[in-house]
Amino acid sequence: MKWIPLWMHQLSSPPTFYRFASVLRPWCIALALILTAVGLYGGLVTAPADYQQGDAFRIIYIHVPSAEMSLFIYGVMAVAGFIAVVWRLKLAESVAMQSAPIGAAFTFITLVTGSIWGYPTWGTWWTWDARLTSELVLLFLYLGVIGLYHAFEDRRQGARAAAFLVLVGVINLPIVHYSVQWWHTLHQGTTVRLFGPSKMEADMLWPLLVMMLASKFYWAASLCGRVRTDLLSLESGKQWVRALAEREGR
């Protein structure tokens, strides 16, 4: 198993990752597009309407994958951020920081689709539902990370500081989640609960799983592109970037 650390070490060198990402990216884009098409067809056409919510429930094919991605990406940032803070690995800094805007976008989509879904279900665009509130706090956390990253003159220093904030947030998020739930029971808010995906029929479920997979590939493609660009500008003085620029320029 000795090849794993060796492979990781080689991959983490910016020129190697640049080539790796360049190869990976088109495949991820293609898979994301195909899976999205399949998932949306399944979700919007073949899946039956919900007996209670009618066609309104179909927004879960956007809402649930986005919600899942908003947490998944934060998890990835936490792992990359930990590596960035402890080992000061340039690639990890880049991955953590370039993930943040993607995660923030998914969180925003989750909030928007949640409130659109809320209108026919709860009769209001916004309610202080425990899960929606936690998601809103998560959005602030993402924005704080992005803001801190850009507040520094030195980008690598900013990346490390923001990565530290990501780690603080990892400890904070479950606390926010449980305290918001406690707050909610205390104040006896809305009692209508949305149906979790676990109770869904197979016809409804498979497009959801496909969409969740599609969003992963979309994230991978987007991250590859962003990290590639970031590495180019971070390493702009290096030989491999100059060589690349000369080759591409021709």
């Binding site: 704080g144 801190l148 603080v168 904070n172 926010v176 707050w183």
Partner: peptide, 29 residues
């Protein structure tokens, strides 16, 4: 974390909000 940056009042508010949500909830509760 913001010590090395330019003046940063708004940024600090943004960063502090997620952390103080549980504190506010329990104290007000």
């Amino acid at each position: 974390l913001t010590a090395g940056t330019r003046r940063s009042g708004m940024l600090l508010a943004l960063m502090l909000l997620p952390l103080c949500v549980p504190v506010v909830i329990f104290a007000a509760g």
